[in-house]
């Protein structure tokens, strides 16, 4: 069995030590830092990208929130303005209506007063007219001139009877 030839042990051990140490130094010095560095760089890059994405997302959300707040404020302002205008217009309309109805009421009152005055006047002239009519009718029918005092009394009597 060639493995048990003791004379080959020394050269094998020597070259094993040499090659193993060389490989160890190369790996420790160059190979592992380089590969590890590449892996770390990638991991860092991915982490950075993720962090930046998260930050951008937060910023976008903040912007959206600000936008919504502004929108809500604008809407509230608009609603307030609309309400104020509506209230103002309603108040103005009510005021105008009140003035109009006041004016109308005054006009109605004036007219009623005038009517009442006219009626009063007409009624006050009534005995004289009726007496005149009665006199002329009597004259036409009988040809006699009636006693003016008696006629007036008779007319007044009748008018008073009707009025009661």
């Amino acid at each position: 069995m060639p493995q048990l030839e003791v004379s080959t042990f020394v050269p094998q051990l020597f070259w094993l030590a040499v090659t193993f140490v060389i490989l160890y130094l190369l790996m420790k010095g160059i190979g592992l830092p380089r590969v590890g560095g590449a892996i770390d760089a990638r991991r860092r890059r991915i982490d950075d990208d993720l962090a930046r994405a998260a930050q951008l997302k937060a910023e976008a959300e903040a912007a959206l929130a600000a936008h919504q707040e502004t929108l809500a404020k604008a809407r509230a302002e608009a609603q307030a303005a609309v309400k104020e205008t509506t209230d103002r217009m309603a108040a103005e309309t009510a005021e105008r209506q009140r003035q109009l109805s006041d004016a109308l009421a005054r006009q109605i009152a004036d007219a009623e007063r005038q009517i009442a005055a006219a009626k009063e006047r007409a009624l006050s002239e009534m005995p004289a007219v009726v007496t005149e009519v009665a006199r002329s009718v009597t004259e036409k029918v009988t040809g006699l001139a009636p006693d003016p005092a008696g006629l007036a009394a008779a007319v007044n009597h009748v008018l008073a009877e009707r009025a009661s």
Binding site: S7, T8, V10, P11, Q12, F14, W15, L16, T19, F20, I22, L23, L26, M27, I30, G31, L32, R34, V35
Partner: peptide, 23 residues
Amino acid sequence: DLSYTNAALMMTIAVVFATALMV
């Protein structure tokens, strides 16, 4: 006896390959 043997050659090749891969 520090002779460079066929075994030493294969060790050297292994080191060269591993270094090539990693470096």
